[in-house]
């Protein structure tokens, strides 16, 4: 699908109106307004954050969050670690599967602190690396899934294992859609068109395990490298069917672990980002917190 864009001569290879425009040269124009939030100490909760380069040469940064110590002034023991991948429709300047490698690098960096090889004081001082969880939202949930699958095949190193996987509104496509809402169907079409742009060389949404881990011929979910999984979906999310199918496939795959699922009635994809203070968003946070606490 080539667009002859008059003017600058750079061919448009994807035009998703109101969202992004991608050119043959690799240039990407983004239209959604996004504000950068610098690291800080949150006034309301006391949570501190900072950005750390884990691969300075590659400009690979992570943001670390540390909760406020209780009023006694010190933590009672070490804290569990949640490695969370944010969403945003995959990275267009660095196509899939590069970001899966970056995610794995981040997890290895965390694991290195278990034997004092890491340099990050917040981790060496406070992290309980016997309780490492991985999670993500939307495209980040997709990334988290693939990280957990890789953890089932490879060692993170230094004896560190993943405890659980938390997937919020996972971004999976392909297969038969049970979507009956016309707007949902149309949105899925747009996402299917986007996938070959962010993942050049893909065989398509139906049988590419990267976007459809439930596909025929995809690696068996039984090898998922953690003990517990939580999947949250929105009741009106066009991709909710994929999230539900993931749970079913995981249960039937022979994987020995526990699957929890939770659905927010009547809510769309990423509703907790557009209305973070809503009752449904707070309910979702509670479900995730309880899930992580129990493990």
């Amino acid at each position: 699908m080539a667009n002859a864009d008059a003017g600058d001569g750079d061919e448009v290879i994807l035009d998703a109106p109101g969202f992004i425009r991608v050119y043959r040269s690799g240039r990407v124009e983004r239209f959604l307004p996004v504000d950068f939030a610098p690291p800080s100490t949150d006034a309301a909760t006391g949570v501190s954050s900072k950005d750390v380069a884990i691969l300075p040469d590659a400009c690979l940064l992570v943001r670390i969050y540390l909760p406020l110590p209780p009023s006694s002034g010190s933590y009672s023991g070490k804290l569990p670690v949640l490695v969370f991948f944010h969403g945003g429709g995959f990275c267009l300047e660095h196509p899939v599967p590069a970001l899966y490698g970056d995610a794995w690098t981040a997890l290895q960096w965390v694991a290195a602190h278990s034997v004092g090889r890491g340099q990050e004081p917040w981790l060496t001082a406070h992290a309980d690396l016997g309780r490492v969880h991985v999670g993500g939202e939307s495209a980040g949930a997709n990334i988290a899934h693939h990280a957990a699958m890789r953890a089932g095949r490879e060692e993170l190193g230094h004896g560190v294992k993943l405890s659980s996987l938390v997937m919020i509104h996972p971004y999976f496509l392909g297969g038969e859609s049970s979507e009956t809402d016309d707007m949902g169907v149309a949105l899925l079409r747009e996402l299917v068109r986007l996938w070959p742009v962010v993942c050049p060389g893909t065989s398509g949404c139906d049988d590419d395990p990267l976007i459809n881990p439930m596909a025929e011929g995809a690696p068996n979910l039984a090898s998922l490298g953690c003990r517990r999984v939580l999947v949250c979906v929105g009741g009106k999310d066009p991709m909710r069917g994929r999230g539900r199918l993931y749970c079913e496939k995981l249960k039937r795959s022979g994987w020995r672990g526990e699957v929890d699922d939770w659905e927010a009635d009547g809510q769309g994809h990423g509703f907790h980002l557009s209305c973070p203070m809503s009752a449904e968003a707070e309910a979702q946070v509670r479900v995730i917190a309880e899930f992580l606490t129990y493990g």
Binding site: P17, G18, D182, M183, V185, A186, L187, R189, E190
Partner: peptide, 8 residues
Amino acid sequence: TAVAVGCR
């Protein structure tokens, strides 16, 4: 619906 979503 397809046109509404695709041709904004």
